[in-house]
């Protein structure tokens, strides 16, 4: 299996002297492979979103590590999916609480906020850590995928993109669901499927997807060349170089993150560009 994760700061954040707000990770043991990808919100109020995305990633790995093959048997699948949603949110909120207890929000951090935003943060300090989250775990012959917000969870199969979640009713135009909102449980989605249904799964933040605008363009101009080159030369450094270029030069200036796992049954012939 090919496993990859990488994040690169975007040129708008470099120019604005802010930090990388995306976060990604991967975890591999004898039983499972986990990848994550999270996009800390860029709005002014989200002063600790770089930590929010890191905690979202950690929470996901911690929770998915506790899932065993038995828990995703057909009978238990629904209960397990609900439990994963709840556990990830509890774990994330707990990490945020811990951090807030040890690092109170300082005046310096909120100096640029207006009174309304300051009031909002004093009421709900965890908003400071607002982030999206996507994650995937391959365990045995099953795949678990989780998602909240406008980062993408894309399956690939025989050279085509397969959308894992229906996002037709998701907000559009720079509005997104977030780990920090009160009703996050209603928007955190979990899907459990057979690995054979896909050749691989890709998670990415909008810094990568937005410049390509459409699924077709993303597939033809990025996914297919990435997959076919990797299968040919096994060189991950070229992918990191491309992501760096999108973040710092070609893209919208947002941070760019890509995580993926490609399964052994993937056939490269489907990923040659049309």
């Amino acid at each position: 299996m090919y496993v990859f994760n990488f994040s690169n700061i975007g040129f708008r954040h470099i120019n604005g002297r802010t930090v990388l707000q995306d976060y990604s990770a991967s975890y591999i043991d004898n039983e499972r492979t986990i990848i994550t990808c999270a996009d800390g919100h860029g709005g002014k109020m989200y002063i600790r979103s770089n930590l929010g995305s890191k905690f979202a990633s950690e929470a996901t790995i911690n929770v998915l590590k506790r899932i065993n093959k038995e828990a995703i048997s057909k009978k238990k699948r629904e209960i397990t999916a609900t439990s994963i949603r709840l556990s990830i949110l509890c774990e994330w909120n707990s990490l945020v609480e811990q951090h807030l207890n040890n690092h109170k929000i300082r005046k310096k951090e909120i100096a640029n906020l207006d009174d309304c935003q300051k009031f909002e943060l004093s009421k709900r300090p965890r908003s400071a850590y607002g982030t999206t989250l996507t994650g995937a775990m391959a365990i045995g012959d099953k795949l678990i995928v989780v998602s909240i917000g406008d980062s993408e969870c894309l399956g690939i199969k025989k050279g085509e993109i397969v959308t894992i979640f229906n996002n037709d009713d998701e907000p559009v135009g720079n509005v997104t669901y977030s780990m920090c909102q009160e009703d996050a449980f209603n928007h955190l989605k979990v899907s459990i499927m057979n690995i054979k249904e896909l050749d691989g799964v890709l998670l990415c933040t909008d810094g990568l997807s937005t410049p390509y605008q459409s699924y077709d363009n993303l597939n033809e101009s990025f996914i297919k060349p990435t997959v076919s080159r990797l299968k040919l030369d096994n060189d991950y450094s070229k992918i990191r170089k491309k992501i760096k270029s999108i973040a710092e030069k070609e893209g919208t200036g947002d941070d760019v993150t890509l995580s993926f796992m490609l399964f052994d049954h993937l056939k490269v012939k489907y990923y040659r560009r049309n």
Binding site: D168, V172, N174, S209, T210, Y212, Q213, S214, Y215, T252
Partner: peptide, 16 residues
Amino acid sequence: KKQSHGGVMPDFGGTS
């Protein structure tokens, strides 16, 4: 609608 659904709005990102 999104381009992938036959509309003109982008599948990813986009301004209202």
